[in-house]
């Protein structure tokens, strides 16, 4: 569903997440960064949800920064 480049980008972003964090994805449950990296690698439904989360954030970031600057 997602290209290898996108998967690698998301895996790198997840690797930089602190180890004392858990990420809950909808009704799938909670995951450590290592668990999510595995899911991304497997191309599972959970992995795809994690990719969607990261990519959506990256795409929205320019407008979020603009909103943050305007509301300061």
């Amino acid at each position: 569903m997602y290209s290898e480049d996108i998967k690698e980008l998301v895996k790198l972003r997840l690797m930089s997440t602190p180890s004392n964090i858990l990420i809950s994805i909808g009704g799938f449950g909670e995951f450590t960064k290592d668990q999510l990296i595995d899911e991304v690698e497997k191309g599972s439904e959970i992995g795809n949800a994690a990719i969607r989360m990261e990519i959506t954030f990256l795409r929205k970031m320019p407008s979020l920064s603009k909103i943050a600057a305007e509301t300061r």
Binding site: N20, I21, L22, I23, S24, I25, G26, G27, F28, E30, A49, R52, M53, T56
Partner: peptide, 21 residues
């Protein structure tokens, strides 16, 4: 329209209001 995502500290399960993340 997609999954609701939460990111939390491993130590805050019982005290969500103290979770600065």
């Amino acid at each position: 329209e997609y999954e609701f995502i939460n990111v939390r500290l491993t130590t805050s399960e019982l005290t969500p209001m103290n979770d600065y993340v």
